[in-house]
Each structure stands twice: as C-alpha cells, then as structure tokens.
C-alpha cells in the first residue's frame, strides 16, 4: 500500500514535470495550451496527495473551467488580430505575398536562440538547487496547525481553512479580493470588450448540454459554498465554479443576452470587497479591531461575507474572461 503510494507520487511528479517541460518547450502555442490544461489536471491530483482537497477543488474549477477557456480564446483573439492586420486594412502595410506565415507567427514561437541557452540554464539550475537544499534542510514542524486547532471553537465555523481565510487571517482574504478587483480594473482600462458574438448553435446538442450543465453548476456552486463551513469548499471554489458556468454561457449562448447593465454589474463585482470593508469597520467601531468579530456573530458574518465574495469572484472572473468594459456602457 505505502509502496504503491510512493510509486503513485513518483509517477505523478514525473508526469507533472514532463508535461510542464513539453509545454515550455513547445513551438506550437495551441499544443502548449493543451499541455497546460493537462498540467492543471495533474496538479489537482498532486494537491489531493498533499491532503489539500480545498486546493484540489479550486484547481479543478479554475484549471478545468477558466484557465483553459481563457487561453484558447486568447489564442483565437491573437490569431484574428494578426489576420486582420494582414488583410489590408488601412494604416497597415499592404498584404505580403507570404501572408499566411503571419498567421503562423501569431501562434508559433520559434525555438529560442542558442546564445541564451547556457546563462538561462545555469541561472535556473542555481536557483533550483538552492531551493532544494533549503527545503531539505528545513526542520520538520507541524506549522500553525495546533494553534488553529486550539482556536477552532471561537472561529464560528468547523472547517479550519475557512476559519483561517475568513476569521484568523481575514486581512489576507480582504486584500486578495481587492487584488482580483484591481486586475479587473486593469483589464477594463484597456478599452471595451470584444465579446464573442452569439450564434445559433449548430444542432441540438450544445443547447441541451447547456440546459443540463448550467443549473447543475449553480446548485453545485451553492453546495460548495455551503459545504465550506464544515468541509472542503467555500467562497473561492464556489465563485470559480459559478464563474466557469458564466464563461460557458458567454461562449455558447445561442442568442444575444441583454447586456448586463452597468450599475448592478459594478455593485455585484465590488460586493465582496465592500461588505468585507463594512464588516471590518464595524468590528473596529465595536472594539474588536479591524476585521474582528464578536464570537457570537462570527458565523453569520462569515456566511454573509462568503456569499458576497462568491458573487464578486464569479462576476469578476466572467468579466476578466470577456476582458474589457461592457459595450454600450458610457458610465
């Protein structure tokens, strides 16, 4: 049994490293992206082996549902921009006879020059071996697990990771939500989005699948959010699942949806940070310190924040996928 586990670990790690290597060495960007999707899948298995089902859940939702679609759509955007530049629009040079190669350039990266090989290799080797040495010499310790365990009864929830995220180290989570918001602001500052146009689905299969998947995804998201108070799950995972469902809708919707109006969309996107801030200020006023809760109020406050954070993360991920401010929004 334990020998099998060790073999499993070794095969898994070899696979992860090999996939990452082929991904980085790939000249074809599409192949690199598919390898990266596989990399995410194998990583989720590694997180399982490291007794981190919460992380595996987040990796599953983000790796399978968001990163892959994001990368594939980005490749397509790059390809269409390059194609348009070479189809003789004004302001661009006339089309080149060897035009098709322009398309290749968009999604191909030639192998790197030889002269950067040794410096890069030596640098990476030095950094890697320093890290390995430091890790092998690090003393064994249980970390903060006993401390967290000792304070679980005042945290308001039964799952240690949720307790850390939303009570003991709520500051981190607050700033993390702020960073996600800032990333979205950065993407919106680049201009309006170029949304994938709605098209009628070619056949009944895609709409049928959507009709099954979207409700199940919403139920699963709520279930994962609810499970977070006592088992692996929580706002991040639920937000990622709902965000992936939203991305699926954006990609596959058969007809144009009414555009999300500006103000409600913005309220939803900022809800997590805003509510967190309000609760933090309330704690400051009530004498518990910034982001401190009274013990009796911990559970309802955590649930409130988690619901808002789930909504914000899901909306922000969809908006980041669409990339750019909503069209027809002059606010």
């Amino acid at each position: 049994m334990s020998l099998l586990l060790v073999i499993f670990d070794l095969v898994l790690l070899a696979g992860i490293i090999g996939v990452a290597w082929r991904c980085l060495a790939s000249t074809d960007l599409f192949r690199a992206v598919v390898l990266f999707i596989t990399f995410g899948l194998l990583l989720a298995l590694a997180w399982v082996r490291l007794e981190a089902p919460d992380i595996a859940l987040a990796e599953a939702a983000i790796g399978a549902g968001i990163t892959g679609a994001l990368l594939l759509v980005t490749l397509e955007r790059l390809r269409s921009i390059m194609a348009e530049r070479h189809s003789g629009r004004p302001h661009t040079p006339p089309p080149d006879p060897s035009g098709p190669h322009a398309l290749l350039r968009a999604l191909h990266d030639p192998p790197p020059e030889r002269h950067s090989f040794f410096p890069a290799l030596i640098f990476a080797l030095v950094v890697g071996s320093l890290l390995v040495t430091a890790l092998w010499h690090q003393p064994q310790s249980t970390g903060l697990e006993p401390v967290v365990d000792a304070h679980m009864d005042v945290s308001g929830v039964d799952h240690p990771i949720t307790a850390v995220l939303l009570n003991f180290r709520a500051y981190d989570t607050f700033l993390e939500l702020a960073i996600v918001l800032i990333a979205l602001l950065g993407a919106w500052s680049l201009g309006r989005h170029d949304l994938i146009p709605a098209r009628p689905a070619p056949g009944p299969i895609l709409p049928g699948t959507l009709r099954l998947l979207v409700p199940v995804a919403i139920v699963t998201g709520v279930y994962v959010l609810w499970a977070g108070s006592h088992a692996p799950g929580g706002a991040f995972q639920a937000g990622a699942i709902l965000g992936a469902a939203g991305i699926l809708l954006v990609l596959a919707r058969p007809r144009q949806l009414p555009m999300a109006p500006g103000i409600p969309l913005r309220l939803g996107i900022t809800a997590g940070v805003a509510l967190f801030l309000l609760v933090g200020l309330y704690g400051l006023g009530a004498g518990h310190g910034f982001l401190g809760y009274a013990d009796a109020w911990a559970y309802p406050l955590i649930i409130l924040i988690e619901v808002a954070a789930t909504l914000s993360i899901a909306l922000t991920l969809v908006a980041l996928f669409v990339a750019g401010r909503p069209a027809g929004d002059d606010a």
């Binding site: 056949g203 299969i205 049928g208 699948t209």
Partner: peptide
Amino acid sequence: WVLVLAAGTTAAHM
C-alpha cells in the same frame, strides 16, 4: 456519470 456523459458527447460532437 451523467455529467461526464453530457460533456463527452458534446465535446466529441463539436
């Protein structure tokens, strides 16, 4: 199982 069936069917078809 149902979800994987739906996903596999859709992906293969598309």
